[in-house]
C-alpha cells in the first residue's frame, strides 16, 4: 500500500538539543495514526516539520509521492496538509462564520455559505455562526478549530492535542467525529489521553528523545516492553 505521506531521515536540532533526530515515518491513506511520547519527545516539532511551520534541516517529506520538503507551510496547506493548533488559535474578534469561511475559501469553495454550514454541522456548532469566536466556550472554540480544519477539505488532518481541556462528555462526541472523517481524510493525532489513543488509532508511533521508539497497532504498542519502560510504565499521564 502506498503511503499518503512519508518522512525519511528527518532532523531538526535547536543548538545542542536534538528535538527530531532521524525520524522515518509513514502515514497510510485513510488511517487514524496517533503520535505519542513523553513531554519533550519531539512530537510537536515533528508535526511542525510535516506541516512546514519549521524548516527541515535534513531529510525529506513526500505527499502522495511528491516531494514537499521545501514547500512553505501555506503551499502545503493548499496541497492538502491541514494543521490544527495545540493552543486554540481561532480568530477571537471575527465571527464564527468568518473563521470557517476563511478556511472554506482557501480550499476554493465557490459558495461559502453552504460550505461553512456543512463544516459547522459536522462539529455540532450549527446556529452559532454569528457569534464572535472569542465569546465561545473553550470546548466550542476547539470544535471551531476542527471545523476550520475540515473546511480546508484536507487529505491529511493533523490534530495537535485536540482533547486537551475538553469535558468527558465532549470527548465522546469528538471521538465519533474523528471516526467519521476516515477514510476520505487521513488523521494524524498527537494525544496525551491514552484512552482516546487506544480507542481511536489504527496505528501508533511512539517518539522518545526525538527518535522513533516503536510503530504498530495499539495492541502491539501496549505489548512492547521498550514502550512500557520509556513511557507507559510507572507513572500515569
Amino acid at each position: 500500500m502506498a503511503a499518503l505521506m512519508e518522512a525519511r531521515g528527518l532532523h531538526r536540532h535547536f543548538g545542542g538539543l536534538r528535538a527530531v533526530d532521524g525520524v522515518d515515518f509513514r502515514l497510510e491513506q485513510g488511517e487514524i495514526h496517533a503520535l505519542i511520547g513523553p513531554n519533550g519527545a519531539g512530537k510537536t516539532t515533528f508535526v511542525s516539520l510535516l506541516s512546514g511551520r519549521l524548516p527541515v534541516q535534513s531529510g525529506s517529506i513526500t505527499l502522495a509521492g511528491e516531494d514537499i520538503t521545501r514547500l512553505p507551510a501555506h503551499a502545503r496547506v493548499k496541497k492538502g496538509v491541514a494543521y490544527t493548533f495545540q493552543i486554540t488559535s481561532v480568530y477571537p474578534r471575527l465571527s464564527v462564520f468568518d473563521n470557517v469561511a476563511l478556511a472554506a475559501q482557501s480550499a476554493g469553495a465557490r459558495d461559502l455559505a453552504p460550505a461553512v454550514a456543512a463544516a459547522l454541522a459536522r462539529v455540532n456548532l450549527t446556529g452559532l455562526d454569528r457569534e464572535m469566536a472569542g465569546n465561545l466556550s473553550y470546548g466550542h472554540q476547539r470544535l471551531l478549530e476542527v471545523a476550520m480544519g475540515l473546511a480546508l477539505q484536507p487529505r491529511v488532518l493533523i490534530l495537535d492535542e485536540p482533547t486537551q481541556g475538553l469535558a468527558a462528555g465532549e470527548i465522546e462526541g469528538f471521538k465519533a467525529l474523528v471516526r467519521s472523517l476516515v477514510p476520505q481524510t487521513t488523521v494524524l493525532l498527537i494525544e496525551h489521553n491514552m484512552d482516546v489513543v487506544m480507542d481511536l488509532a489504527t496505528r501508533i508511533t511512539v517518539l522518545n528523545f526525538g527518535q522513533v521508539l516503536a510503530t504498530g497497532t495499539p495492541a502491539e504498542i501496549r505489548a512492547n516492553p521498550a514502550v512500557q519502560e520509556a513511557y507507559l510504565g510507572g507513572h500515569d499521564d
Binding site: 511551520r53 501555506h74 503551499a75 496547506v77 480568530y91 474578534r93 471575527l94 476563511l102 480550499a107 476550520m148
Partner: peptide
C-alpha cells in the same frame, strides 16, 4: 483582516 488578526494562523489556512 485575518492577516491583521493572526498572521501565523492565516498561513496555516493556506494563505501566503
Amino acid at each position: 483582516v485575518a492577516m491583521r488578526e493572526n498572521e501565523e494562523r492565516s498561513r496555516m489556512l493556506g494563505f501566503n
